[in-house]
Design a protein around this nucleic acid. Structure first.
Lengths: 224, 224
DNA sequence: CCACCGTATCGTACTTTGTACGAAACTGCT
DNA sequence: AGCAGTTTCGTACAAAGTACGATACGGTGG
């Protein structure tokens, strides 16, 4: 009875556990820190062990992209389309902000997973149920997704996080350009972006509202 | 006189030549194919030689992002703002489509180069000259850029190139889903996306027009 | 013409990362 | 216990970034 040291039974590996750990590692240290070895360490296992559950690293990347999609709220086809589409857009932004490494991945992975397909299906269903033609649904979806992803890209490329740290980061850069090049950029930065209380994230609502309003105009039966 | 074989004097390296070659390599084989060794081979030089002209690979990446920005047409502040903004948006899309590897980079690089800053300055100048307030300029710029970048991201993640190859790529995938999951997605695909003549790139114009129209509404003196 | 010196290029080698290959450990079943 | 399938691991190699010091080059004063 001296042989048993059941301190950590270390549950068996599985594809799901591998993917969850991969998400955790990427969340903690970015995509660059997600290596097979770091992933194995997170799982308390030796590197080559993960290869029993996934074919290669690409499969891991595909998997965590689909995981991210699975976290985005789906719109309900039988609800008010503006409310539903707005909800899924807001949710998408939040999810992408939380897993900002995912944006880079979504661009490179071309084999969508089940959550990704379900997501697209739900959005299309909502737009069609709202009365949009097939052509308008395609237009609207392309526009909405371009906006949501593009906003996420911009947000991810900002060098700061919270609303208050903007000034601290940008001011030293700005002073460097006080020489007279980029006058409009500097003016906007000092007089607007760097003002206390400015939060780039707030811009999201403006654009989303504008797009939804404009799309509503094109719906049949609308006072054009 | 048997010593001189001046066939290829191989011009000296320079930072610019390094960056140009890096763009060429990325254009030809994607970002993944851009390694210090492949770059050195393109330049007809040994790997470590490029390190005399750039500090590290990150500096190369920053450099080629700025190069891409330098290729985007700048709007003129004294022209019609809709024409100018539309022109720069269209140009940006074309450039990003030609160098699709750049999209992934722009997201990760946080130190903008001179062309990038000049670009932002010109866009802000045009919007301000058009009569947009500072707040509206910030709103409009965030919206426009999110759309342009987001559209480029979507376009880059499509697994096909020209308008006619869509069906060939998508049909086998679609048949795989004829089981009844994703009914709306399949319906849109077969009845719309896969119809002859459909080109996803055409969606760009729709969204851009919609956004510009909606922004024009908010300009002072407009019949609101 | 030559020694000299700053600039530019290169050779070698170490580190990190993905992963092939086969051995070892573990599991449940007879 | 013995065996077969399942899961984990040890070893090792290739590709890629790059540190470090040596070498080659190109112009200048003696």
């Amino acid at each position: 009875m001296e042989r048993s040291e059941p301190q950590e039974p270390r549950p068996r590996l599985s594809r799901d556990r591998v993917l969850s750990a991969a998400v955790a590692v990427a969340d903690a240290g970015g995509l660059g820190s997600l290596t097979i070895r770091s992933l194995a360490q997170e799982l308390g296992v030796k590197p080559m062990s993960v290869y029993y559950h996934v074919a290669n690293k690409d499969e891991i990347l595909d998997g965590i992209v689909d995981f991210v999609f699975s976290q985005i709220e789906l719109p309900a086809a039988d609800g008010d389309w503006r409310t539903e589409i707005r909800r899924r857009a807001t949710s998408a932004r939040q999810v992408l902000r939380h897993h900002s490494w995912a944006i880079a991945l979504m661009e490179s992975r071309t084999t969508p997973g089940p959550a990704t397909l379900r997501h697209h299906d739900a959005v299309i269903a909502t737009l069609r149920a709202a009365g949009f033609s097939r052509a308008m649904t395609a237009h609207a979806y392309a526009l909405l997704d371009a906006y949501v992803y593009g906003f996420a890209v911009q947000e991810a490329s900002l060098p700061f996080e919270g609303p208050e740290t903007v000034a601290e980061v940008a001011e030293p850069i700005m002073e460097h350009f006080a020489t007279g090049e980029y006058p409009h950029l500097v003016e906007m930065a000092t007089e607007y972006y760097l003002q206390p209380g400015y939060d780039f994230g707030d811009e999201f609502e403006f654009g989303l509202h504008l797009i939804l309003d404009a799309l509503a105009q094109s719906l049949p039966g609308h006072p054009g």
